[in-house]
Design a protein around this nucleic acid. Structure first.
Length: 319
DNA sequence: AACTTTTACAACCGCATCATT
DNA sequence: AAATGATGCGGTTGTAAAAGT
């Protein structure tokens, strides 16, 4: 209903904004505020439609916009929020002060999405992809030609149905490139996962808790990756995949609603995930003091996310 | 150096929803 | 309640810059 032609009107300019136009728009809004976007262009002396002005302001000219590369924490937060909220970019942007929905959406499509796909993780469901086929044979042939270990026997046929093992395999493939020496160690340390998978096939990754915690882990020389559903499969022992890293690896764990990154403890409940105005940002992301933003390093971390939503949790709240 | 391909991101489009009359 | 107008949102496109050949 009620839609009216906008930029298609003859005489209204489209395409990239010039510095002069930016200046006009900025000056006008700083003095008068945006007010009515439809009438703004005329008042500001711009030959643009209101929609174009609004977009230019909210996505680019607004003074509180943070520009530049996304920090590691920001990227991690985006992945976490996306796994819960889906493509609700504006909701995600509300948790990342200074970032716009458009910027996050672009960053997701050009960086994060591709990286998840490369790591065998479905960027829509955030679950390991089942077309990551025949991992045991792939691993055996690519990782263990030197007869370090028979991965097939470690994993077993059912491994292909176990998301934990898919993640483990994925991580091992990454490790192969970074530090092949510790692969055997990882496999042995995670043999319990493999054994358990033979007896008790883990269900697909599901959301089981409405509160979770991201804790920093000191990983001087070795880090831990966390696989989904660790508690069910391994009892009280979290299901970690050890790996080499000098960075602090944020880790999601249960039974707390506190999130801390680099020592900064922050509330992080699903309540806080509900839509919040940009003017009152939740302190989800810390100040960008974490400088480990090397792509390869980030790539290694992309499989560590774990979300648990309790039974009976009402997802409609987020729809 | 010239051309092609890829990447990154600003901007646009159209639909949905909210607000007002 | 219905009609209309305004705004917000997510998907998509266009294009400049970078990378590759």
């Amino acid at each position: 209903m009620g839609r009216t032609p906008c930029c298609d009107k003859i005489g209204l300019k489209k395409g990239p904004w010039t510095p002069e136009e930016d200046l006009k728009l900025t000056n006008y809004i700083q003095i008068h505020g945006p007010g009515n976007w439809r009438t703004l262009p005329k008042k500001a002396g711009l030959e643009r439609c209101g929609k174009s002005c609004r977009l230019r302001w909210t996505n680019y000219l607004r003074p509180d916009i943070k520009r530049g590369r996304f920090s590691f924490e920001e990227e991690e937060t985006i992945i976490q929020l996306h796994s819960i909220l889906g493509n609700k970019w504006s909701d995600i942007a509300a948790r990342l002060p200074g970032r716009t929905d458009n910027e996050i959406k672009n960053y997701w499509n050009t960086h994060i999405r591709k990286r998840l796909l490369r790591n065998g993780i479905d960027p829509v469901t955030h679950a390991p992809r089942l077309d990551f086929l025949d991992l045991s044979s792939i691993l055996s042939s690519t990782l263990c030609n030197q007869s370090l270990v028979n991965v097939s026997s470690l994993l077993g046929a059912q491994a292909l149905l176990n998301p934990q093992l898919l993640l483990l395999a994925n991580t091992l493939l990454s490790l192969k490139e970074e530090n092949p020496e510790i692969i055997l160690q990882h496999l042995q340390q995670n043999q319990q996962i493999c054994n358990n998978s033979q007896e008790n096939l883990a269900p697909p990754p599901t959301l089981q808790s409405n509160h979770f915690q991201v804790q920093p882990m000191q990983t001087t020389g070795e880090g831990f990756f966390c696989c989904p559903n660790s508690q069910e499969t391994l009892g009280s022992q979290p299901n970690y995949i050890q790996c080499s890293s000098d960075s602090e690896v944020p880790l999601v764990s249960e039974n707390s609603n506190t999130r801390s990154v680099n020592g900064c403890s922050q509330n992080f409940t699903l309540d806080s995930l509900r839509s919040t105005p940009i003017s009152s940002p939740t302190p989800l992301n810390s100040s960008s003091t974490c400088s480990s933003s090397v792509d390869d390093e980030r790539e290694s971390f992309s499989s560590l996310l774990k979300f648990e939503i309790p039974d009976g949790f009402d997802f409609s709240e987020f729809m």
